[in-house]
């Protein structure tokens, strides 16, 4: 039973990682940059929902929607102010700017909302009992998995069927050619950031509902782990993010349960390194040979 419990915890945690990883993967696929500030957008989303529900007594649905809207705008503003001017800059410069943005968000949150941790009230409470006294699944876990599946299906349809989605794929393939075909590259990149940040807000609320501690640094470790998940599954690939996220969640939960609570991070990162050494493009990533 404890094994089944771990599997369920792992999959629900993995679903949250997968939603975050999608943001990383989409942005990397198009802008070819690591958006280190993504983890902190998660934190902002969780704070917005926390205050909407706690201070203004809004219903959870409104809180989540508000978080999504705020983060979408935040994501687009960050892209416009910090990343767009660096479109032509070397990737190191962009990466360091992203780290700067991450610091900025964390420290702004600390000044605005204080460094003390807050207890997040889950958006849904209670749990579903499968085997009385032994096996139960919290509604938050079910909601996480459902959200993850809905987001995956939605995104697959979006990138496959809609005009904007096709434009995104075209941009990630070849920006110059896409521009010549009449695609507005800047608007497409901005849209990608908007979608990624909206997903981050959703993930932030789900994560804080499952693990109800909220502080300005809440987003950084899950952000790093979700990035690991994205790399694990093959960065740039949407199904890869799902696979990587779920696997990472399961590995982390099993590492905690069977190896050592303190070493779960080490286990996760060791797996990442091994995967990258065997398959440098990740599990489902495309390996692009270098042309000279």
């Amino acid at each position: 039973m404890s094994f089944l419990n771990n599997v369920i915890t792992g999959i629900s945690l993995g679903s949250i990682y997968a939603i975050i990883a999608l943001g990383y993967t989409m942005v990397y696929g198009i802008a070819k940059m690591l958006n280190f500030a993504h983890g902190d957008v998660i934190m902002v989303g969780a704070y917005v929902c926390f205050f909407a529900m706690g201070s203004f007594n809004l219903p959870p649905v409104v809180g989540v929607l508000l978080a999504v809207v705020v983060c979408t705008v935040l994501g687009m503003v960050i892209e416009r102010l910090a990343y767009k001017p660096l479109r032509a800059a070397p990737s190191l410069a962009v990466l360091i700017t992203a780290i700067g943005v991450s610091y900025l968000l964390q420290n702004s949150a600390q000044i605005l909302w204080g460094a003390a941790t807050k207890t997040f009230r889950p958006i849904v409470e209670g749990s579903l009992t499968l085997v009385p006294g032994q096996l139960s699944v919290s509604y938050v876990a079910i909601l996480s998995v459902v959200c993850c599946v809905v987001v995956m299906v939605g995104l697959t349809l979006f990138t496959g069927q809609t005009k904007m989605g096709k434009a995104m794929r075209a941009c990630s393939e070849d920006k110059g050619a896409a521009q010549l075909m009449g695609i507005d590259v800047n608007a497409t990149i901005s849209m990608t950031f908007a979608i990624g940040s909206a997903l981050a807000a959703l993930a932030g609320v789900l994560m804080c509902s499952a693990y109800p501690v909220l502080s300005p640094t809440t987003g950084s470790m899950p952000g790093i782990r979700a990035f690991t998940a994205a790399v694990f599954g093959g960065i740039g690939s949407v199904p890869g993010a799902l696979l990587g996220g779920i696997l990472l969640g399961v590995i982390e939960t099993f590492g905690k349960a069977y190896i050592s609570t303190d070493l779960s991070d080490a286990v996760v990162f060791a797996v990442l390194i091994i995967v990258l050494l065997v398959r440098p493009a990740g599990l489902m990533g495309k390996y692009v040979p270098e042309k000279v």
Partner: peptide, 20 residues
């Protein structure tokens, strides 16, 4: 309280000023 905030802003501005 603001020292790390200033840090972050300086970091971003330096990167923008030297790479744009």
């Amino acid at each position: 309280d603001y020292r790390m905030l200033v840090y972050a802003i300086v970091l971003i501005l330096v990167m923008l000023a030297t790479n744009n």
